[in-house]
Amino acid sequence: MGRILIIAEHDGSTLNSSTSKCVSCAAGIENDGIDIVVFATSGAGIASQAAGLAGVAKVLHVDNEANANPLAAVIAPQVVAIAEPYSHILGPSTTFGKDLMPRVAALLGVGQVSDIMAVLGPYTFQRPVYAGEAIVTVEASADRKLVGTVRSASYKAAATGGSAAVEATSVDANLPTHSRYGELKAAASDRPDLQTASRVICGGRALGSKENFEMVFKLADKIGAAVGATRAAVDAGYVSNETQVGQTGKIIAPELYIAFGISGAIQHVTGIKDAGTIVAVNKDAEAPIFEIADIGLVADLFAVIPELESKLG
């Protein structure tokens, strides 16, 4: 048995829920303690949020101006510098973790287990391949450090109420200057976050235009849902990239997911398989989305959405 280190994801002030999912995953691995590390400019506040996650032993924060923004090339050597006592190093399978963790693994000279969806033993995991059309059980060697990313949708958030020790620490690592952060253009939105929302409404190519997509937003606002989209809808410019759900977008697990005008390509469906209830509205009775829908309605979305909106009023 060894200790587990989790790399915290945050936006400079708030801990991302993906970190809590990593704690839940780590709790399933036999361990001598779960620690979290926060890389930030002044991470005490974020660290205290992490310290509240049940099951965490210790939270480290490494404060450095260079950590103002998440640059994998800058963070990875710092992770390596504190990696020694740990048998497992985990990060979330979000764009943050996907960027960082392979760089950490390579610097440590070890492979990585991506998208851990189940822990079968300390070195045995299940993960999806082929856009979730197959699940492999992989076994890593117990003689090496295990680096992995955690598929957030497979885990519930860890309980809160913990009181881990918080410790500021510094690391001795050569930080590269070859990579410089520019800016983040985030679509301002006061809607629920797609990755954590309990209700999600997704629209597909059939919406036909940015203007028509407003229908989806209106209905979502009515029932307090987050809005997602298929690649086709994003590519066509109806909605921005961060709404894409699927193999190459977000993997979500809301209690309720409603698809309007979505065919159900495997690359999309892999992102919604963990939803509690899947509802599909499509005018084609043969659309593959109906194979996985719990509730299906063969109808024209342009009639259904306004009717739903008025009847749910």
Binding site: V110, G111, V113, T124, P128, V129, G132, E133, A134, I135, V136, T137, V138, E139, A140, S141, R144, K273, I278, F290, I292, A293, D294, I295, G296, L297, V298, A299, V304, E307, L308, K311
Partner: peptide, 22 residues
């Protein structure tokens, strides 16, 4: 470094119901 022990099909979701209207 990773032995693939086994490959399984994904879990199937239970068959759903079709509804007639809104």
């Amino acid at each position: 470094q990773l032995e693939i022990v086994k490959t399984d099909p994904p879990a199937q979701r239970q068959k759903g119901v079709m509804v007639e209207d809104v």
